[in-house]
Computed example of a mutant assay.
Amino acid sequence: MFSNSFLRQTATTIVFIDASLSDYQTLQAGIIEGVKSVIISPNQDGIEQISQILQQHPHITTIHILSHGSPGCLYLGNSQLNLTNIHNYTQQLQQWQRQNILLYGCNVAAGDAGEEFIRKFHEITNATISASTTKTGNAALGGNWELEVNIPENHGTSLVFHADTLKTYQGVFAPTLVGVWDRLSRAYAVTVVGNYAYAVGDTLEIIDISNPNNPVFKGNYDISNGRSIQIVGNYAYVADEYSGLQIINISNPSAPTLVGNYDTSGNAWDVQIVGNYAYVTDGNSGLQIINI
């Protein structure tokens, strides 16, 4: 989704907008003249996407990043940048060594976690970091457009949006609920493959999530207490706490069928499939290795 073909060598300010933001097109259209923008694809590592663009355009001095956030965490593409993994991205973040980086995600600088995250971000990039301790976005939803924290302290950097855009934008830059599927009385684990979510608890539920705002039931198979699931090809391998390993054919999502079971001696909690073997953690019975 992202493209850098339009970045002129004279542009010194760039805005990265995560496509997961509601109505991100309005934000992009509201950027002031002379500032370029890049949309971060939701299907790729957002840190990698930003790093690639910046590596190719060393003349950029100011970076604005619009994405969802939480204390000490940015959600970028299909990845997160947070206190736990920030040092894993040190090499990529060295491409971000510019004068100013503005982080618009909600609450990114809030609390002890936010303060430590911003400090580490500054240490790696050597940039002045501006970030928010509150919600960013629409005032009616509790948001504002102030970036309250600057490290090192300065007077901050001007925003890059037309005033009308800031007044009329209807969202906030925090994770928001877009869809719910609540048929299971207990839901313990989920895996997603293609357009389907496979959730386990008291049953295996197969849910069409091609429209995340409107998940649609496709099929189910009764199990006792599913704790973990892995999909390999046309089969779902379920660690079913009281019934061991359940192997379910899901080639027809509307009518899944049981094709195999191994009742482990303990309580099956997790399963991983590698080659012809299922590795099941089985409570007090340790690791069970099952030839499948």
Rank of each mutant, 00 (worst) to 15 (best):
Q91P: 02
N249Y: 05
F2Y: 13
L83G: 15
T257Q: 15
I60T: 00
Y221S: 11
I47E: 02
T62I: 11
H155K: 12
Y277K: 05
T133K: 13
S130D: 09
D182T: 05
F121I: 01
S79M: 13
G137W: 11
W96S: 00
D208I: 05
P256R: 05
N82Q: 07
I32C: 09
N100V: 15
V200N: 10
A11R: 01
T136A: 03
L93W: 08
I129K: 04
Q92V: 04
I40E: 02
V108Y: 07
Q94K: 14
S37R: 01
Q246A: 14
Q97C: 12
Y235R: 14
F16M: 01
N214V: 08
L27I: 06
Q170A: 13
Q246N: 12
T165M: 04
D45I: 06
L81M: 03
V38S: 00
N267F: 14
Y221G: 11
V38L: 00
N249H: 07
L287N: 07
I231A: 08
F161M: 05
G137Q: 03
S132D: 02
Y262D: 03
T12L: 12
D23S: 14
G179V: 06
V172S: 09
A199R: 06
I289Q: 04
L184A: 15
Y198F: 01
N252G: 11
D164E: 12
N82Y: 02
N284T: 12
N261D: 05
K218R: 15
E146R: 06
A127H: 11
V190A: 12
E33H: 09
C106M: 04
G171C: 13
N154M: 02
G260P: 11
C106N: 11
D45H: 04
I247A: 08
T203I: 07
V190W: 00
V271W: 01
N195P: 05
L184Y: 07
V192M: 12
I50T: 06
E115N: 14
S243H: 11
